[in-house]
Structures are given as C-alpha cells and as structure tokens.
Amino acid sequence: MPIELIIPLLAAAVQSGTPILYATLGEMITEKSGVLNLGVEGMMMIGALSAFWISLATGNPWLGFLMGGVCAAMLAAMHGLVCLGFQGNQVVSGLALTIFGVGLANYLGTPLVGTQGIGFSKVSLPVLADIPVLGAILFHQDVLVYLSFALPVLIWAFFRYTRLGLHLRSVGENPVAAATAGLNVIGLRWLGVLLGGFLVGLGGAYLSLAYIHLWTNGLTAGRGWIAVALVIFAFWRPGRAVFGAYLFGGVMAFQLRLQAMGTDIPASILMMLPYALTILVLIASTMTGRGGEAPAALAVNMEPEE
C-alpha cells in the first residue's frame, strides 16, 4: 500500500476508533468497580441522540456533548437501581438496558431524522500538526479526538494514584474486604456505574456530533458491543484500550481501502478481518503472558447485610 494511502488510513483509524475508545474507557471504569453493564449500546444511542438534540436546540455543541454524557449516565442509573438497589442479575439488566435504550432513542429521535445537525469539525493543532507523518495522523482531527488522547492517561492515573481510584478498584476486587475496611461499597459502585455511563454517552455523542452531523435510527450500529469486547481485549488497562480501539477502527478502514484499490476478495470475507484480528491479537497477547485478570468480583452483587 503506498504511503500516501497509509497516512489517511491511520488518521481514519484514529477517528473511527474514537467513539469506541470513549465507550471502552467508560465500560472499563464501571467494570473496575465490579459492575458489568452490557447496556453500552443503549447508552451510546441515548448519548448520541441527546447530544444531537441539545446542541441543535441550544446551538451549543459543547453543551450537547456534555449532556450526551449526562443523559447516558441517567440511563446507567437504571442499571444501578436494578443491580445495586435490587440485586438484579447484571447480565440481564444490561441487556435489557440495551433494548430499552436503543428503543427509547429511536422512538424519541424519529422527528429528528433528516435534520442536519451542528457539531465539531476538524481543527489542525498548530506546531504539532506539522510533525511529519504523526502530525497528519494525530493532529488533523477534531477537538473531541484531542480530548480522548488525554482520557486514558487521566484514567490510568486515577486508578493508580488517587485514593478514590484505589477504593473503586478494591470494591471491584473484593467488596467484602472493602466493606470491612469501612468503604461504602454500594456508593462506590454507583460512582463506577454513573461515571462509566457518562463516558459511554460521550462516545455516542462523538458519533452524532463529530463523526457525522446527523441522526438516524440505529446510529451506533453495534459499536457498543465492540466496546464491551475491547474492555476485555484491553485487560482492563486504559493504554491497551487505545490500542484496541484504533486497531479495530484501523482494520475496518483498511478493508474498505483494500476494496477501493480493487480486490477480488468477497466483501463478506473482508468484513471478518476486524473481528478475526481482534481474537488473534488477544490470543497472542494472552500467550505471551501479557494478559490480565478481570476484576475478581465482576458481575457479582454485594449482598445486603453482609
């Protein structure tokens, strides 16, 4: 593949990886606190719709972006209520949340179909954009991409160096011990659910505000599920989430470019590439011992009176 194709390919990898990256990091925070929320797809849809709607209504895309996260966090609160309040099974609650969220977004969003929205366009960063190769790949993007560069570092530092981050991790690893040590397990898990939902919603908002400035039914088209998979792929580490999201986006962009250049390989076989490669890379990193364990108490509810 010629170099003048590789640079736009990698730039496309970054852009198409970004909504998945936000969502992956969000789900990662939730899972670190010991709660599995399979409602990512539903929360992304709600995030995408509310961001689109609110920025259109107020003319302020930043407000829309923020509210995309807030509304998704409100949806996540339903998961929190069912699982943390009522001890409901986290798998079913998450799946139900996806069904509900996707339905609600499509229901409320129908009048907005065909409306042109406002949002973020690409802004080259001064100086950085002039770096050869890297500048063209990383610094000719929109503001929300730049924001997403900072997130993994922040989340990594949060879990490693702050008390709150440590507490959050400990309720995900051993809630009984955490409770004995005087931590408010349910409260911390609520924090994980809401904060995670917020970030997932930002991923949805990225789609409707920056990737493409419009709303249609089923806008997220399964990206939420990819995020669920990438949390595991990343072994619950923010750095590897970046790798996973860009890898997935990059392989998808690659197979499209392969077609554009002309190939005889059937499209359905090419479409398998991103999924197959995700598994293969995961197998490779597990075998070379770079694997990591899930939070020990993931998807296990903390029983009251324990």
Binding site: P8, S16, L207, Y211, N217, A221, A253, Q259, A260
Partner: peptide, 22 residues
C-alpha cells in the same frame, strides 16, 4: 466499495472516504 450495511452512516461515510483517498 461494499459497506455490507444499509444504514450505518459512520461506516458508510468511512467507505466514501476510502474512495476519496484513492
């Protein structure tokens, strides 16, 4: 370029970009 989708606006936009790149 086959997108293998009927409505995934983001992916279809990316498919168009891949054609613009060539």
């Amino acid at each position: 370029v086959w997108s293998s989708t009927w409505y995934d606006p983001a992916l279809e936009k990316e498919a168009a970009n891949s054609l613009l790149d060539v």
